[in-house]
Simulated assay, not measured.
Amino acid sequence: MSDKQHAPATLRNREPIAEVLARELPASGTVLEIAAGTGEHAMFFADRFPALHWQPTDPSPEALASIAAYQAEYPGTNCAAPLLLDAAMPETWPVTSAAAILCINMVHISPWEATVGLFRSAAQVLGNSAGALILYGPFMEQGIETAASNREFDASLKARDARWGLRDAEALDRLAAEHDMARSARYALPANNIMLIYR
Rank of each mutant, 00 (worst) to 15 (best):
D173V: 05
M106Q: 03
A36P: 12
K4M: 12
A191F: 09
A27E: 15
H108W: 00
G37M: 06
L118V: 05
A123D: 01
V125R: 01
L189N: 07
I104Q: 02
N192V: 12
P111L: 00
A162H: 11
L52G: 08
A176P: 12
F44S: 13
A147P: 09
I144R: 15
G143E: 08
E145Q: 15
L25E: 04
D173C: 08
C79D: 00
A80H: 00
L135Q: 03
A46C: 06
R14L: 02
L64T: 01
M89G: 11
G39S: 10
T115A: 06
A171E: 13
L166C: 10
A9R: 09
T30Y: 04
L21Y: 03
E91N: 14
Y70W: 12
K4S: 13
L25Q: 07
D173R: 06
I17D: 03
A88C: 01
W93A: 01
P190D: 08
S156V: 03
S156N: 09
P75V: 05
P138T: 08
I194T: 14
A65N: 07
P190Q: 10
E178I: 09
S149H: 05
M1D: 12
A169M: 13
D173S: 03
R12F: 03
A147S: 11
E91F: 08
A159P: 05
L118F: 05
L83W: 02
R120D: 09
L11G: 14
A36Q: 09
T115I: 02
W93G: 01
F119I: 02
I101P: 04
V125A: 00
A63S: 14
G29T: 11
F139G: 02
L32Q: 10
T30Q: 11
P138L: 02
I144D: 13
A155C: 05
D173E: 07
A80E: 01
G29Y: 10
R160F: 03
A27Q: 14
S156P: 03
Q55I: 03
D161Q: 04
W54E: 01
K158N: 02
G143Y: 10
P56H: 05
S149Y: 10
S28W: 10
P138F: 08
A98D: 00
A68D: 06
E73T: 11
Y187N: 09
Y136S: 02
R23S: 14
I17K: 05
A147H: 12
A80T: 04
S97W: 06
V20A: 05
Q124Y: 06
A122P: 06
